[in-house]
Structure formats: structure tokens, C-alpha cells
Design a protein around this nucleic acid. Structure first.
Length: 395
DNA sequence: AACCAAGCCAACCGCGCCCCG
DNA sequence: ACGGGGCGCGGTTGGCTTGGT
């Protein structure tokens, strides 16, 4: 069926906003809040459709928007999160609190993407376009593993997002019963400053990441750094990356533990039996997604990477550490970016540490630096996550 | 100085999801 | 259960700016 237009376009203005229009919109929202966007234009005396007003507000007029050049750290954050989340701009924007998804998207498309491409790195997969370029030092494989991570995380994101939605739904059921007839979205809006970017899933996914890195990932690799994966090394040997989703207190579902196990390609277990039952639908999705992510939908059947998830769930990656060198890879990129960038680091307080080893001497992540780089990579993501509002207002 | 191409970014478009009646 | 409204998201476009010749 055809979708009705967002508004009656007849007589409505399009194109660039005038200062007068900005002023009207700003004044109205400051006084009344945005309420229903559709109803806003007439109330505010604007000849615009509600959608246009919303976009203008969220992308430009919001008072908490930071404009201007992206700092090196912001660039790093974007690149790292993009490697994990893909084009989920709103999710990425959640971790760059003063930037809009639109701004980040634009910056990616106009700067970062080109920079990566120029360097022979596929901006989609974050791995070198020509594997042979780097294969001698193992970076291509590790870049491929980053891609694995991204796909894995992506699948998890979807599943976690479902969980969150379920939780939110139930949360809204309880809240909305006591908040007259406001639409649920307005319930959220009303409870929050109207300016806070929302994300449906990113925070939770990052929480997973936290647990992941805090839990077993790095340790797991630590033990497998030199020659791993037999008996469950590498990705297949992940220590249960326990979901640490922050649900609303009253509706907190029990923790789900996802075992990306060496035994069967992945196990999801509720911490007690009825948990899973209660979240049956979610469990199914999570399980489904996790399974497909692990067993070929993304990895095994894609044949785009060197390593393979073999039948029993462990990763056969031709005896390279599955995570080795990702930091090296990313920092290679970032260092190059820093060098090619005419901005000076000091502009934004350059050694803030979030980038971990990005400034380590040669910085090309070869040889024995791989392990450290690997650790630093995830630590850097963790750092940025920790320093970001991942205690999202949404949850 | 004039022209052209590339870069950049605000805004738009269309789709999908969620909620409500 | 279903259909429509509202909103958010990601992709794309169009126009202005900047840089090169």
C-alpha cells in the first residue's frame, strides 16, 4: 500500500531555513517542547512540515550540538564504532554525545570513507581491499577478524535490540498507565531533555562489548596468543560475553549468557530455566541470530575471510591469533590519518589516552606489537564507551 | 578574473518500526 | 488482527563554497 506523505506538501516551504524560521522554531520548542512534530508547525507559525521541523531541530538547532571540526579522537571513535556497528549512525552518535548522526554520517562519507579507501582499506569491512598487501605480516587476517567481530556484534546488536525493545515495551506498559494518554514516544521525550539523541540498541550493545572485553575476550586471547584455537581457541573460545543490558529495574529480565562455545558453535543459556521461557521470543531471535552469525550466514558461508568457523564451532584461522593486529590495523589507519591531517593533535588535547597505543613509536603494529595492539584496540573502544553516556537515557 | 571541478553539508526522501484505536 | 499515524533512521540530493587552472 502506498504510504501517505508525512504532511500535506501544498503550500509548505522547503529548502534552507531562514533565521526567522529558526527563531520561531527555537522559541516554540523552548516554551512548549516539541510535542507532536506534526502539529508543531501550525502552532509555531511555520510553513513547514513537521518532519522538516524535527530534522532542523535535531540536526541544527538543538542547544547541545557541538559544531565544527571533528577531533582526532572523535575520528577514532567513529572509525572504531563503525567497524563494530556499521552504518548505524544513530548508535554511533550516541557515543559522540554532541554530534548528530547526520553530521557523523556526512563526515564519514566525505572524509573518513575516502581516507580509508585511499589507503586501500575497504570502508565497509574495514579490511584491506587487497589482502596480499598485508598478508605478509598477518594484518589482512586480523582485519578480516575485525570484520568477523563486526558481523558478530552486528548480529548480537539485532538480538539485543529486540531484548531492549521488549523491555521497553513492558516498561512503557507500566509507565504509560500512569501517564495519561501520551504516546509512548512522548513519554520518553517528556522524561528527557528533548535534545538527547536516542538509540534503540547501541548502548546495550556496547554494554555487551564491555562485558566481552572485560570478561574473557582479551584473556582468552592472552592464552592463545602464540598458537591458539585448538580445543577452543579464538573466537570460538570466547568467554561468555554476558549481557549487561541495563533494564529498568522493575522489568529487568534475567541475565542472558551467550556462550560462543567451543562445543556446539554457541550456547545461550538463561541463568535459570524459566528465564528463557519468559523471553521465549527474544530467546529465539537471539539464538537464531547468534547461530546464523556464527555458523555461516555471515562467517562460514561468506568465504570472504581466511579463517573458517568449523563445524564444532571453533575458529580455524590458520593458526593466527584471531584478534591479533586489529589495533595495529586501526592505528595504522589512524596514525596515517593523523599524519596526513593538517590538524595538530594538541588542538583537542591529543594524548588523552583513549587511543591506547596509537602513538607507539613505529605504530605499524607488526610482529610482537600485535598482541599489545590487540589489547589496546579493545581497551580503546572500552575507554571510549566508558567515557560516553552509555548509561543511555533510553534505558 | 572567469570558469570548472571537487568538496562539503543541510535538508529531503522513503522505508521500517512501534504504538494506538 | 489490522490499518493508519507518528517518528526515527539511513541513503541521497542539491546548492553553496573552495580550490585549481
Amino acid at each position: 500500500m502506498g504510504r501517505s506523505p508525512c504532511c500535506d506538501k501544498v503550500g509548505l516551504k522547503k529548502g534552507p531555513w531562514t533565521p526567522e524560521e529558526d527563531q520561531k522554531l527555537l522559541a516554540y520548542i523552548e516554551e512548549h517542547g516539541h510535542g507532536s512534530w506534526r502539529a508543531l508547525p501550525s502552532k509555531a507559525g511555520l510553513q513547514r512540515c513537521g518532519k522538516s521541523c524535527r530534522i532542523r531541530w535535531t540536526n541544527y538547532l538543538r542547544p547541545d550540538i557541538k559544531r565544527g571540526k571533528f577531533s582526532l579522537q572523535e575520528e577514532q571513535t567513529i572509525i572504531q564504532l563503525h567497524a563494530l556497528l556499521g552504518n548505524r549512525w544513530s548508535a554511533i552518535a550516541t557515543h559522540l554525545p554532541k554530534r548528530t548522526d547526520n553530521e557523523i554520517k556526512n563526515y564519514w562519507n566525505t572524509h573518513l570513507k575516502k581516507r580509508l579507501t585511499k589507503m586501500g582499506i575497504d570502508p565497509v569491512t574495514h579490511k584491506p581491499k587487497n589482502d596480499t598487501l598485508l598478508s605478509s605480516d598477518g594484518q589482512s587476517k586480523t582485519a578480516a577478524n575485525l570484520s568477523h567481530m563486526a558481523q558478530w556484534e552486528s548480529a548480537r546488536l539485532e538480538a539485543e535490540a529486540r531484548l531492549v525493545r521488549e523491555s521497553k515495551l513492558r516498561s512503557h506498559l507500566t509507565t504509560s498507565s500512569s501517564s495519561n494518554n501520551k504516546p509512548s514516544s512522548d513519554v520518553v521525550s517528556a522524561a528527557l531533555p528533548p535534545t538527547i539523541p536516542s538509540s534503540r540498541s547501541s548502548s546495550s550493545s556496547i554494554d555487551v562489548l564491555k562485558a566481552w572485553t572485560n570478561g574473557g575476550w582479551l584473556k582468552s586471547n592472552e592464552g592463545n596468543n602464540n598458537n591458539n584455537n585448538s580445543g577452543g581457541g579464538g573466537i570460538g573460545d570466547l568467554e561468555s560475553p554476558t549481557s549487561t543490558l541495563s533494564f529498568s529495574e522493575n522489568n529487568a529480565p534475567p541475565p542472558l549468557t551467550i556462550m560462543a562455545g567451543g562445543g556446539g558453535g554457541g550456547i545461550i543459556e538463561g541463568h535459570n530455566g524459566n528465564n528463557v521461557k519468559e523471553e521465549g521470543k527474544v530467546y529465539d531471535s537471539l539464538h537464531e541470530l547468534t547461530m546464523s552469525a556464527m555458523e555461516g550466514t555471515s562467517w562460514g558461508s561468506s568465504h570472504q575471510h581466511h579463517d573458517v568457523i568449523v563445524g564444532d564451532g571453533h575458529v580455524d584461522d590458520d593458526d593466527d591469533d584471531p584478534m591479533v593486529g586489529e589495533e595495529g590495523f586501526t592505528n595504522l589507519l589512524l596514525n596515517a590519518a593523523a599524519q596526513s591531517d593538517d590538524r595538530s593533535l594538541s588542538e583537542e588535547g591529543g594524548g588523552d589516552g583513549a587511543s591506547g597505543g596509537s602513538g607507539d613509536g613505529d605504530g605499524d603494529g607488526n610482529g610482537s606489537d600485535f598482541y599489545e595492539d590487540n589489547k589496546n584496540y579493545w581497551n580503546s573502544i572500552l575507554n571510549l564507551v566508558n567515557s560516553s553516556p552509555s548509561d543511555s537515557p533510553m534505558f
